[in-house]
Amino acid sequence: MSQVTVVEVPQWQGSGSATAERLVEGAGLLAAMVPNAALRQRVDIEDGDTPADLAATADRVRAVIAEAREGLVVTVGGDCGVELAPVSAAIDRYGERLALVWFDAHGDLNTPASSPSGAFHGMILRALTGEGHGELLPGRAISPAMVVLAGARDLDPGERDFIVAAGITHATVADLADPAVLVDAVAATGATAVYVHIDLDVLDPGTFASVGTPAPEGLQSDHLLKLVTALTERFERAGLGITEYEPGRPEDQALLAPLVAALVASAS
């Protein structure tokens, strides 16, 4: 098992949720759920009494990751936009050997022009492919062919069009019943390393509801763990991100704590 660095990014400004400020508490709770971390770093999201802009926060995350020790970096949010710097670092390190598996109820594939909400957490995956706000793009984009969207079920029309046009692999909840389908989808990209992003709204809100934008008919927590474990048993682990926890119900925290610990263990 490799050593683990936890990077806590309590960013809420990129979320379109009406209760987004709960993400600050959620990030702290997620970070505390990661056991036996060799290093823990909390990224400041404010400039004095003023919330920092998203680009400034991304720069701070980038600096923390650059100083991280060898081993697995686990980034906990905060909204999905906190993944800009961690995924960028993985792209820089692994290049064309990297696949990005994006567990999310939503596509996060809008541009500023197509987004219904204007919220960056709905644009972050598109940004990682090289399209979006100039200050919120990676230094090196990932090819859409190396992206696997997993568990998405609430997609905007523009996102559906982009998935088809760009050739993004979309594994639905039904597809994911067999973990081999996901492993095969990543293998088909030619990747040898995988970065796993988890927006907790990929889970079914009937069993986990502490998210800002729930969508019905999602994954169960034990099956999510099976899927991630299947990936990390086959591919080199390039990083793990866990995002969008808005604490609300005690039973959700009770479900999440062992899940986070198991996810990190499977990836490290």
Rank of each mutant, 00 (worst) to 15 (best):
residue 45 I to L: 09
residue 63 A to T: 11
residue 57 T to R: 04
residue 64 V to G: 00
residue 37 A to L: 12
residue 43 V to M: 03
residue 44 D to W: 02
residue 43 V to A: 02
residue 59 D to S: 05
residue 34 V to M: 12
residue 43 V to T: 05
residue 51 P to I: 11
residue 57 T to H: 04
residue 61 V to I: 14
residue 64 V to W: 01
residue 36 N to K: 10
residue 38 A to T: 13
residue 46 E to N: 07
residue 45 I to P: 02
residue 56 A to D: 08
residue 43 V to G: 01
residue 66 A to E: 13
residue 57 T to Y: 03
residue 51 P to K: 14
residue 41 Q to M: 12
residue 68 A to L: 08
residue 53 D to C: 09
residue 51 P to F: 05
residue 66 A to R: 07
residue 66 A to M: 06
residue 47 D to V: 10
residue 47 D to E: 15
residue 42 R to K: 15
residue 68 A to G: 08
residue 68 A to S: 10
residue 37 A to Y: 09
residue 50 T to I: 10
residue 63 A to C: 07
residue 42 R to A: 15
residue 66 A to C: 07
residue 61 V to T: 13
residue 50 T to M: 10
residue 67 E to C: 06
residue 61 V to D: 05
residue 41 Q to C: 12
residue 41 Q to F: 06
residue 50 T to S: 09
residue 68 A to H: 07
residue 68 A to F: 06
residue 68 A to C: 12
residue 53 D to Y: 05
residue 59 D to R: 01
residue 60 R to H: 06
residue 57 T to C: 15
residue 47 D to L: 10
residue 45 I to C: 15
residue 68 A to D: 11
residue 39 L to K: 14
residue 55 A to I: 01
residue 50 T to H: 08
residue 35 P to E: 09
residue 41 Q to P: 05
residue 39 L to Q: 15
residue 49 D to H: 12
residue 36 N to A: 13
residue 35 P to L: 13
residue 56 A to Y: 00
residue 47 D to H: 13
residue 42 R to P: 13
residue 40 R to P: 13
residue 67 E to I: 03
residue 50 T to V: 11
residue 64 V to P: 00
residue 48 G to Q: 08
residue 46 E to R: 05
residue 46 E to Y: 06
residue 59 D to F: 00
residue 49 D to K: 12
residue 51 P to W: 06
residue 52 A to T: 03
residue 42 R to L: 12
residue 62 R to I: 00
residue 38 A to L: 15
residue 56 A to G: 10
residue 67 E to S: 11
residue 43 V to H: 02
residue 48 G to T: 08
residue 37 A to Q: 09
residue 38 A to E: 14
residue 62 R to L: 00
residue 62 R to Q: 01
residue 55 A to F: 01
residue 58 A to T: 06
residue 53 D to H: 08
residue 40 R to I: 12
residue 54 L to V: 04
residue 68 A to P: 09
residue 68 A to R: 07
residue 60 R to Y: 03
residue 37 A to T: 13
residue 49 D to P: 08
residue 48 G to N: 11
residue 35 P to R: 13
residue 59 D to A: 04
residue 55 A to Y: 01
residue 56 A to N: 04
residue 57 T to W: 02
residue 63 A to I: 05
residue 57 T to S: 07
residue 60 R to F: 02
residue 58 A to P: 04
residue 56 A to R: 02
residue 38 A to K: 14
residue 48 G to I: 10
residue 35 P to H: 09
residue 36 N to L: 10
residue 44 D to M: 04
residue 54 L to C: 06
residue 68 A to M: 11
residue 53 D to F: 04
residue 50 T to P: 04
residue 62 R to D: 01
residue 52 A to P: 06
residue 54 L to D: 05
residue 62 R to E: 01
residue 62 R to G: 00
residue 48 G to A: 11
residue 50 T to C: 07
residue 67 E to N: 10
residue 42 R to T: 15
residue 43 V to F: 01
residue 48 G to W: 07
